[in-house]
Design a protein around this nucleic acid. Structure first.
Length: 593
DNA sequence: GCCGTTTTCGGCCCGACTGTTTTCAGTCG
C-alpha cells in the first residue's frame, strides 16, 4: 500500500536530514546534497509521487541513486529506516528553530538541548519565553546580543506565520521607487538599481535587494541610514547594510565601486540557483566568479567588469535577461546562442479582457469606466484594438429572451461605437464577453445569445474544489463552443489566498492547440495567471497565449506590464502571444470577416 | 550524496557580517 507525501512534506524531511547531518558534523558535501534535493523538490512543478509512480525518481535533479532509494522506501512504507537512524537524538524542534533567521542547525540543536525543548509543538513559543526569561544568554558561547537577536527574529517569524509574508510585485516596486528617490539625492551615490527577485520580476517579493554605485561607500552608507522609515538596522558593514523598515519589510543594500558594477549586478540579481550553476560552469573553465569580477584560479588574476554584458561574454555566453535567470536551461541556451527573444511591453497591440460600466446586469462585478474612457486610454497606450468582455448577465435574474435582448443591444452599441470612434481613433473594438463555465461544463449563457459576440472568454469563478478529472473535463467542455477563444485566468490561483485548482494541463494544452484556443496570462497582480512556470510549459506545448489586463477601470489598463513580466519569466516571445498580432490576424483568429 | 562537452573518480560557488570561545564558526544571500 503506497503512502502519499506532498512535495512540501518531502522537502521538509530532506531538510531535516540535512540539518541532522550538519549537527553530527558529517561530510559537508553530503549535507549540501540533501539541501539541494530539498530545494529542488520544493520548487518542482510536478508531484514527486508522480515520478515515483513512473519509477523515475532519480530523474529529479539532485536526486541520485541513494536519495531515490530512500524516497522509494518512504512511499512504500511511510518511513525510512536510514532516516530514522540519522535523526536519532535530534529533537524535532530543530526543524522549527531553523526557520528562524539567524538560527542554523548547530545553533538550533544547542538551543533545543540546553533549553530542553524537544517536541515541535509550541517550540517557537517556548524558545521565545526562554529568551524573555534571559535563559539563552546563560548558555555557553551564547551572550546577551545573541539572545536579543533571536528574540527579534522570533517576533518577525511570528508575522510570517500569520501569512503577511511576501509582497506582490507592484507593492515592492513602489516601495523601491520611494527608496530610490531618497538615495538619488545623495552626492555620494551615482546610481541605484533594484536587484534580486525584484529585478527578476518575481510575482512576489520577500526582501527588497538593491545596489548603489559609489566611489565612497562609507559616506554613502551613512547617508542611507538617514532614510526616515527605518525601524532597525539589522546589520551594517563597509559594503552592505540590512535595514528593517517600519512596515517590517527588510531591505538589503549593497555598495559597489563603478569599476565592479557589472559583476556586482550579476552577483546580486541571482537567482541563487542561476549563480551556483554559473559558477560551476565557470570553474570548469578555470575561472572563479564573485561580485568583484572573474578570477583566473591559476594566476589569481582578477578581471573587473563595469557592465553585465561583458561579464557574460567573458564566459562565452550571450547576455541572459534577469527575468529568466532561474537555472531553467538559460545557461545552456546562452552557450548555444539559443536564448529566447523575450516579448516586450511595446509589442502589445491591444487588450482583450476589459470590463466596462456598460449596464449588462452581470453575474459578477461590473466595471467602473465607460467604453469611451477606456478607448481614450487605449489610444494613449498605442493600442490598435480592444475587446470588451464584461461578465455574462446573471442567470438567475434573466430568461433566454432577456439574454438575447441585452446582448443584441450591446452589439448595436459596439457597432455604433466602432463607426463613431473610428473618426477619432484608429482602434478596432471587439464585442466580447467573459462567460462562467458552470460546474457541469456548460456555459452560463444560452447558445442563441452567443451569436451576437465577436468572441468570448470562458472562466471558472465557482466550485473550485472538484477533482482533477472533473475539472479537466469541465474546462474542455467549456472551451468547446466555437465562439469561446480564450480561457480566462486559467489556474484560478490567487497569490497567498487560493491555490490553483487541480487539472490535467497537458490534456488542456493539447485541446487548445488542436482547436485554436488561447490561454490567458491575466495581469492582475494577485492573479498573474497563468503563472510563469506554466507559461513555459504551455509554450513548449505550442499553445498560443494572450496577455490581458482584466481591467475594471481605466487605470487598471496600466497593469498590462505585470502580465508581460510573467510572460517574460516563462520565456515567451512575441510570436507566442496573440495580442502582439495585427487587427487582421485577430479577426482571423476570431473567425470574423 | 550527486554528477559528467576535459572526469564514472574527484571534485563540489563565493564572500560579508556577527558574536564570542579574540581567531573563527555559524549563518546568510
Amino acid at each position: 500500500m503506497t503512502k502519499y507525501f506532498t512535495n512540501k512534506e518531502i522537502s521538509r524531511l530532506l531538510e531535516f536530514i540535512s540539518a541532522a547531518y550538519e549537527i553530527k558534523n558529517e561530510d559537508k558535501f553530503r549535507i549540501l546534497a540533501y539541501q539541494r534535493a530539498a530545494v529542488t523538490i520544493e520548487h518542482l512543478n510536478r508531484e514527486v509521487k508522480d515520478y515515483y509512480d513512473e519509477g523515475r525518481l532519480s530523474s529529479i535533479p539532485g536526486v541520485g541513486p541513494s536519495i531515490a532509494q530512500h524516497l522509494d522506501e518512504l512511499f512504500k512504507n511511510g518511513d525510512v529506516r536510514h532516516f530514522k537512524e540519522i535523526t536519532k537524538g535530534i529533537p524535532p524542534s530543530v526543524l522549527e528553530f531553523i526557520n528562524v533567521s539567524g538560527i542554523g542547525p548547530k545553533t538550533a540543536f544547542k538551543l533545543a538541548k540546553e533549553l530542553n525543548i524537544w517536541s515541535k509543538k509550541n517550540a517557537l513559543d517556548r524558545l521565545k519565553k526562554a529568551a524573555k526569561d534571559k535563559k539563552i544568554e546563560k548558555i555557553s558561547s551564547f551572550g546577551k546580543d545573541t539572545q536579543d537577536n533571536i528574540l527579534q527574529a522570533l517576533l518577525r517569524t511570528r508575522v510570517e506565520s500569520e501569512n503577511i509574508e511576501r509582497m506582490l510585485l507592484p507593492y515592492a516596486y513602489n516601495l523601491f521607487q520611494e527608496i530610490e528617490y531618497f538615495l538619488n539625492k545623495s552626492q555620494y551615490i551615482d546610481e541605484v538599481k533594484a536587484l534580486g527577485s525584484l529585478r527578476r520580476k518575481n510575482s512576489t517579493i520577500g526582501d527588497i535587494d538593491l545596489a548603489i554605485k559609489t566611489s565612497n561607500p562609507s559616506k554613502a552608507i551613512n547617508y542611507i541610514l538617514k532614510f526616515p522609515k527605518i525601524k532597525k538596522v539589522l546589520n551594517q558593514g563597509n559594503k552592505k547594510v540590512t535595514l528593517l523598515l517600519r512596515n517590517n519589510i527588510q531591505i538589503d543594500i549593497r555598495a559597489q565601486d563603478p569599476s565592479e558594477w557589472g559583476s556586482m549586478l550579476q552577483h546580486f540579481t541571482g537567482s541563487k540557483d542561476h549563480n551556483i550553476k554559473l559558477r560551476e560552469f565557470a570553474r570548469k573553465k578555470g575561472l572563479s566568479l564573485s561580485e568583484y569580477g572573474i578570477k583566473k584560479i591559476k594566476s589569481n588574476k582578477l578581471m573587473k567588469f563595469s557592465n553585465e554584458i561583458d561579464f557574460y561574454q567573458k564566459l562565452g555566453l550571450d547576455y541572459i535577461p534577469p527575468e529568466i535567470r532561474e537555472d531553467n536551461g538559460e545557461i545552456e541556451a546562452a552557450l548555444s546562442h539559443n536564448l529566447p527573444r523575450l516579448i516586450k511591453l511595446k509589442d502589445i497591440k491591444g487588450d482583450l479582457h476589459l470590463h466596462s460600466s456598460y449596464p449588462i446586469e452581470p453575474s459578477h462585478d461590473l466595471g467602473k469606466s465607460t467604453f469611451e474612457q477606456m478607448i481614450k486610454k487605449a489610444n494613449i497606450l498605442g493600442y490598435q484594438y480592444l475587446g470588451f468582455s464584461e461578465h455574462n448577465p446573471s442567470q438567475n435574474k434573466h430568461n433566454e429572451a432577456d439574454f438575447i435582448s441585452i446582448l443584441k443591444d450591446k452589439r448595436d452599441y459596439i457597432d455604433k461605437l466602432n463607426y463613431s470612434s473610428s473618426k477619432k481613433y484608429d482602434i478596432k473594438i471587439f464585442n466580447g464577453l467573459e462567460i462562467d463555465i458552470k460546474p457541469d461544463g456548460n456555459l452560463a449563457i444560452p447558445d442563441k445569445a452567443l451569436t451576437y459576440l465577436d468572441y468570448a472568454i470562458a472562466s471558472i469563478h465557482t466550485n473550485f474544489n472538484i477533482n482533477n478529472k472533473a475539472m479537466t473535463n469541465r474546462i474542455i467542455k467549456g472551451l468547446s463552443h466555437p465562439k469561446i477563444k480564450i480561457l480566462g485566468h486559467p489556474t484560478g490561483r490567487k497569490i497567498q489566498k487560493r491555490e490553483a485548482y487541480e487539472a490535467d494541463w497537458d490534456k488542456i494544452f493539447e485541446f487548445c492547440l488542436k482547436n485554436n484556443k488561447a490561454l490567458e496570462i491575466n495581469s492582475w497582480p494577485e492573479r498573474q495567471d497563468l503563472p510563469d512556470t506554466m507559461v513555459k510549459r504551455a509554450i513548449e506545448a505550442g499553445v498560443l497565449l494572450v496577455i490581458n489586463s482584466d481591467s475594471h477601470r481605466v487605470n487598471h489598463m496600466d497593469l498590462m506590464k505585470y502580465g508581460v513580466y510573467v510572460a517574460q519569466r516563462g520565456w515567451a516571445e512575441k510570436k507566442d502571444i496573440l495580442n502582439t498580432k495585427s487587427t487582421t490576424d485577430i479577426k482571423k483568429f476570431f473567425n470574423l470577416k
